[in-house]
Design a protein around this nucleic acid. Structure first.
Lengths: 175, 175
DNA sequence: TACTACGTTTAGTAGTTACTAAACGTTTTA
DNA sequence: TAAAACGTTTAGTAACTACTAAACGTAGTA
């Protein structure tokens, strides 16, 4: 006979590990887990209590969670506290995460690759002809790949109304 | 008029940043870039020379690249050196990466969630009825989401022959 | 006014990670 | 046999990251 509080702790631990796996701080996973398991919106101090983290840490982590669209901040009238509740439509979260990616370091690097390609095909590069041709070929292939990925993610972003389960069904048909 | 060697350096720098963005060491990106831009298979020392890293670092990083299927190790008869060349079919690489994921810490955590759910629905948890019901609902929703993701990745893995560009076309039709 | 209840910011810290330098083991060559 | 040419492993390091503790700012309350 497992006790409910223990089960919650296990679950929080699980999401912490997942968080770390995705490259996020494990504290983020813990915070999300706590908020996600709460029926009512939680105040900062309640999160502090349930995670065992300090106010400062929760304050900063919860903000990035909000920026990612995984939790939402709200407030009650005549109550100075901030309250947080979890986004339950994960598909919505995914979309906001993908959108955020657009403005990241990744796309900066991607633009760099594009510029490299442009220089190569504009003939403004000095060096052995064959070497230039080869590099062009390779960089072009890489960019085609990135563009494909980009189309995919953009398609997912635009699917708005379509649930993930539907996408799954479609892909199952493809097999 | 840009010089070819400079352009290569820029490209290497770009892939390094991307590598870091995906949570891999930037050295990994640099190594892949060097190998990818080489028309002929490269020996370890040549990679060392072009990346500026030490032998030890390249030795270990290149091995994980090989494990991920992004580079391939080969050797010439009567030559003691190992040679490395880049995988150019990125779709193949993606599949091997997704396969590797299966055995990771992530799936361990996922199993944990599954167990939590099983305990909740088997009635072997002591505590407030309503709270248990609520937690079950939430954990169930999360797992449904994970299962959807899983189906998607498995679908991608099984697509074997189908190129990424084709998948893109299909998703474009969906819009 | 001082006091309390908040959330934020800052300074410092423990732990981690990606690397370097160098020793090492093994196989080929002289 | 010694020496050279490889790739690997290990010990140590510099930089980074996720955190804690505590000071801080601000707005409401007595």
């Amino acid at each position: 006979m497992t006790k409910l509080p223990q089960l919650k702790k296990d679950f929080i631990e699980n999401l912490s590990q997942m968080s770390r796996f995705w490259g996020f701080p494990k504290g983020m996973g813990a915070i999300f887990a706590v908020v996600y398991l709460s029926p009512a919106p939680l105040a900062l101090d309640e999160i502090v209590e349930q995670t065992g983290m300090t106010k400062g840490a929760v304050s900063t982590e919860v903000r990035t969670l909000a920026r990612m669209g995984l939790v939402h901040r709200s407030s009650k009238l005549g109550d100075r506290k901030d309250y947080y509740e979890a986004e339950t439509d994960f598909y919505t979260s995914i979309r906001s995460l993908l959108k955020e990616r657009q403005h990241s370091e990744f796309d900066r690097a991607l633009r760099g690759v594009r510029e490299t390609l442009e220089k190569l095909e504009s003939g403004s590069v000095s060096g052995n002809e064959a070497e230039i041709a080869f590099m062009y070929e390779r960089v072009k292939a890489l960019q085609d790949f990135f563009n494909a990925i980009d189309s995919l993610t953009n398609a997912v972003i635009k699917l708005e109304s379509l649930g993930l389960s539907n996408v799954t069904k479609i892909l199952n048909i493809l097999k």
